[in-house]
Design a binder for these strands. Structure first.
Length: 298
RNA sequence: GGUACCCUGGCCGAGUGGCUAGGCAACGGUCUGCAAAACCGUCUACAGCAGUUCGAAUCUGCUGGGUACCU
């Protein structure tokens, strides 16, 4: 049986280093599970693997998207499953690492097969939401898919809108697509979670933001500024610098906000990962124990 | 030294006698299609003291701190 090694943890915990070590020892390749490192133009702010690191181990799904590309967890699942098929021809084990919780789950547990919403339906409902607000749309959902209406978070526009998009586009209820069944995978999965004491993690995050700024994050942000309204740029590290470039914030303040939002993000990641009972948790300094768990000689 | 104004929770900020503003942060949580997204919950403060009043963050006095102007 082939095996997928899933290395997860909050941003800044030190996943990259360990993933490289493991992949080198196994002489295998790495699949990134980071929704923002996939954009070619967001290298510094997403702490994407460096050229040297990419030279050490072959990576997949890093820098493979344009900012204007539509992408989603479902597409990621599809793309990764195809790629894994190829990789498992050559390797017994493959490493998947990243902090995008839903992307990881999409690969490990699967995601329902729901049609991708076309651009017209999407913008039609978005416009209605912007002009009418959420209430009328909730009322509509109650009629079109009463079952989902009962369980959705009615204040979360993203969820309500998506359900309506599916109803409109397919003529069926969103519920009918929502089986929420875990998919069986033709390979084993071993999850390794990295965590640190909060103080320690926060200090690393703060420091890393300073390094990013020294590395030219502001320049990178300036280059993509014309695309700032795209979802791909609703990203920590960029959205704050846009406020600076717009003259709303002082640079120092924007940098503090980047640190703060990164810390908040790391906490959300931990909240998500916490309830996954299948994760084997380690401190990054316990790398030999991780290798032992994988079954690698030290 | 004098005059005026100000002092609200970690921060910002509304509130002129009874009805726990709100926002941000912090902390906890939700999560199956833009997820580094979106959303939810918790956090009862009015500088201190004394008084007026049935009742004071809101009125009065004193003390402390701050700001502005005057001599």
């Amino acid at each position: 049986m082939k095996r997928l090694l899933v290395l997860i943890g909050p941003t800044g915990v030190g996943k990259t280093d360990l993933s490289l070590t493991i992949a080198e020892k196994l002489q295998t390749e790495i699949i990134s599970a980071d929704s923002r490192q996939m954009y070619a133009d967001l290298k510094i702010g997403t702490a994407a693997p460096t050229i040297e690191q990419l030279a050490r181990v072959k990576h997949h799904f890093v820098g493979n998207l344009q900012l204007t590309d539509y992408y989603s967890a479902a597409r990621y699942e599809e793309d990764v499953m195809l790629r894994l098929e190829e990789l498992f021809l050559r390797h017994d084990q493959v490493v998947l690492t990243g902090g995008s919780m839903m992307y990881v789950d999409a690969v490990c547990k699967g995601i329902d097969d729901i049609p991708t919403v076309d651009a017209e339906t999407r913008s039609f409902l978005l416009r209605r939401y912007e002009s009418e607000g959420l209430e009328p749309l909730c009322a509509e959902l109650k009629l079109l898919d009463p079952e989902y209406y009962r369980v959705v978070d009615l204040k979360n526009s993203k969820r309500v809108l998506h359900a309506l998009e599916i109803c409109y586009m397919t003529g069926k209820t969103y519920t009918s697509f929502r089986t929420r069944q875990q998919k069986k995978r033709p390979f084993d999965i071993l999850k390794i979670g990295l965590s640190r004491e909060r103080e320690e993690l926060y200090a690393r995050i703060n420091h890393r933001v300073d390094l990013m700024m020294a590395d030219g994050l502001l320049e990178e942000a300036r280059k993509v500024y014309p695309y700032k309204h795209l979802n791909s740029l609703n990203t920590v590290g960029y959205k704050e610098l846009f406020r600076y470039l717009d003259g709303e914030w002082e640079l120092d303040f924007a940098v503090e906000k980047i640190k703060q939002n990164s810390r908040i993000y790391s906490r959300k990641q931990m909240t998500w990962f916490k309830r996954d009972e299948t994760i084997n948790w380690f401190h990054p300094s316990q790398d030999s124990e991780v290798l032992n768990l994988i079954g690698l000689p030290l």
